[in-house]
Simulated assay, not measured.
Amino acid sequence: MSALIATPNTAMAVANPWSLVPPLGNLDAYISAANRLPMLTLEEEQEFARKFKNDNDLEAAGKLVLSHLRLVVSVSRQYLGYGLPHGDLIQEGNVGLMKAVKRFDPDQGVRLVSYALHWIKAEIHEYILKNWRMVKVATTKAQRKLFFNLRSMKQRFKSDDAAADLGTHRETLNPEQIDAMARELKVKPEEVIEMETRLSGGDVLLDPSPSDDGEDAFGPIAYLTDTNHEPVAMIEARQRDVLATDGIATALNSLDARSRRIVEERWLKVNDDNSGGMTLHDLAAEYGVSAERIRQIEVAAMKKMKTALAAYA
């Protein structure tokens, strides 16, 4: 883009101001170049803003953006404590700056720097909330307010504790500090506690990758998985229930009376004292045969029932 940007104090012009911005990959050089770009006077800002608003002059919009890149750099430094790349913060702030230029009305009597500040912070806030953790920690308006104020307010409370010589710094807020923060931010104390808990936690992989030595890593998926409502498990449980009721009844009906009584006494009967039914010797004495014969009848009856159950299933 071939453009001319007039400096505030001289009639000299900078041809193609984009040439002052270095190639990608060198953040320090970019910041240095952004700080060297000339700022616009009120008259120049009004002129370029009207050209863009009335005539859709993209060259004028580019001049407005370029002259405020240093503002984005300055604002982005305030959010370095969230552990995200400075370059990404600047990039998102530049998106907010361009949105501000697009919506800027020069007839409102406000300088672009004041109007753009909100849009720059809004884009940076949204980027931080989406990328600070794998799981989004703030969704409501109150949660967003807490997210961006909790850390600074905790630091202030720690400073107050130190000034009052109250001993070691607390990592968590006490009830008085929670109430004070809730009043200042106009939120509920429960929301302050919830956000502090979210910020103090960390992301945990549900299913961690195996370690370098090939051993499977233990993760929450090992104990959080609910198999009770897994479709296959539910079908299998239903089939077991049917076999344990109607299936067993059908299999018992396939036996003669003696075999059925032996199976019921040996496997299905439970007395009031939770003891089982008759023993082999008890049944042998009743039927006038040996205990071994009762065992043989039992084995044959169980095989017949197994066949009947397989056919029923």
Rank of each mutant, 00 (worst) to 15 (best):
M1N: 04
S2N: 10
A3H: 08
T10C: 01
A13S: 02
V14L: 09
N16F: 00
P17K: 00
P23F: 03
L24W: 09
N26T: 00
Y30K: 00
Y30I: 00
Y30W: 10
I31V: 06
I31H: 03
S32H: 05
S32M: 03
L37E: 00
L37I: 14
L40D: 00
L40H: 00
Q46P: 02
E47L: 03
A49D: 04
R50L: 07
R50K: 11
R50Y: 14
K51N: 10
N56S: 15
L58D: 13
S67V: 06
L69Q: 10
L71G: 14
S74H: 12
V75S: 06
S76F: 09
R77K: 12
Y79L: 01
G81L: 04
G81F: 11
G81V: 07
Y82T: 13
G83S: 07
N94H: 12
A100H: 04
V101Q: 01
V101W: 01
K102N: 12
R103K: 14
Q108R: 15
V113Y: 06
L117F: 14
H118I: 01
K121N: 13
A122S: 09
E123C: 09
H125C: 11
L129W: 06
R133K: 11
V137Q: 07
A138N: 02
A142S: 15
A142E: 15
R144G: 07
L146G: 07
N149G: 06
L150P: 06
L150C: 12
M153I: 15
K154E: 03
A162C: 03
D165K: 12
L166T: 06
P175M: 08
E176M: 15
Q177R: 07
I178W: 01
D179H: 11
E184Y: 10
L185H: 01
L185W: 00
K186M: 11
K188C: 07
K188F: 05
P189F: 05
E190D: 15
E190I: 09
V192P: 03
I193K: 14
E194C: 04
T197I: 07
G201C: 12
D203Q: 05
G214A: 10
G214Y: 04
E215W: 04
D216H: 08
A217Q: 11
F218H: 09
G219N: 01
I221Y: 03
A222N: 14
Y223I: 14
D226M: 07
N228H: 13
P231W: 12
E236I: 11
E236T: 09
A237G: 13
R238Y: 11
L243I: 03
A244H: 06
T245M: 02
T250N: 14
A251W: 07
N253F: 03
N253I: 07
A257W: 01
S259M: 08
K269M: 13
G276Q: 02
G277C: 00
T279P: 09
L280S: 04
D282T: 05
D282R: 08
A284G: 10
A285P: 05
E286R: 11
S290T: 15
A291R: 06
E292L: 10
E292N: 13
I294A: 02
I294W: 12
Q296L: 12
E298R: 15
V299M: 06
K303V: 00
K304I: 05
